[in-house]
Design a protein around this nucleic acid. Structure first.
Lengths: 178, 178
DNA sequence: AGCAAATTGAAAATGAATTTCATTTTCAAA
DNA sequence: TTTGAAAATGAAATTCATTTTCAATTTGCT
């Protein structure tokens, strides 16, 4: 965009994350490592440097990472760590609740960290792929209510809204008028 | 039709049987075909027997079909129709609103017909894969409300609840107690 | 009928996800 | 500390749904 004025700038600042905790503190990072280590013990797996590196790299991000993106970040810290190990570790993290998969319906699986995070959902722009988080206790309540009604034991749900973000909507409008 | 007697019924309804009654009436089927034909005209594509067969086969189902499942059904009517054509036609149907994709997060894309259908959502059993439809106007309202709040123009959303259906829950319970 | 453009479908390609396997590392018992 | 069974690693191979290619065929307009 050419010369976004002050109004546009503040619009951009309002975007993205709503649950604005900064990077995880050292203590939280260590607590997360404890969770992983306990999980490994519990299921009879071993503690390795690679797994720690991958967990730490993952927790330092705020984005919704694909396997490949995380692997790229991990390689900066240790170029010898392979994609397969990242893949398997991410599955492990999902198992012990530190990560969860978010499907944005674009063909690739993304993961976000789930540790100490409020329940939230995503709104995804179908034009540029950007996403915004939002919170809706009503959706969580509906999960329980509908589950009960149909005799299900609900364990999780997905809720995503797709549409055009403000910026893409404006671009589309200016394309039409020109 | 006003209370036709048994004789009238057998005349009008011909060989129709309760257990193979199509989901859509003949008029609705034809209306759906009109929608497809108009769409083809609009985008400069051609009308073919294969496309009609595939649409009709699709509309006769109630399930959430994968490409492969629909192809299998289509082949019963015309064994020469290939997977590729089913694939491309399903995309066409989605384009003109007759079909829509539902992602149950099991790795394969499923389609359901959308023509003249109430807005609905799915609850999926993570054990046996069965699914139940439910209706929740609240979810549709939330889409609008949250979109407005975050300056999005929402076009669609996905909402699925995952959990254990009653039958799988009972099986799990009896496994535990034995 | 003639013909350009679209369609068809078998086969090949694609690409993300997963598995294989030979080698290396971990960890608990000796 | 040493040892060895079990697990981990990572490059490569595989899987498998999806998508594209292309030569032959069909459609629909004039």
């Amino acid at each position: 965009m050419l010369n976004p004025g002050p109004a546009a700038a503040s619009f951009f600042m309002l975007q993205k994350r709503i649950d604005d905790q900064p990077l995880l503190s050292r203590e939280m990072m260590q607590e997360a490592e404890q969770i992983l280590h306990k999980h490994l013990k519990r299921v009879g797996l071993k503690h390795t440097a690679q797994r720690d590196t991958i967990l730490r790299t993952f927790l330092e991000t705020r984005e919704h990472l694909s396997m490949d993106e995380l692997h790229r970040l991990v390689k900066r810290k240790d170029p010898r760590i392979g994609f397969t190990t990242v893949y398997r570790t991410l599955k492990l993290l999902a198992e012990c609740g530190l990560a969860s998969e978010v499907a944005f319906h674009d063909g690739i699986a993304r993961f976000e960290h789930q540790y100490n995070r409020r329940s939230h959902h995503h709104m995804v722009c179908t034009e540029c792929g950007s996403s915004v988080e939002f919170f809706s206790p009503e959706v969580d309540r509906l999960e329980q209510e509908i589950g009960r009604k149909h005799h299900y034991l609900p364990t999780r749900h997905t809720f995503q809204i797709y549409g055009l973000c403000e910026s893409c909507r404006k671009k589309a409008a200016s394309r039409l008028s020109s």
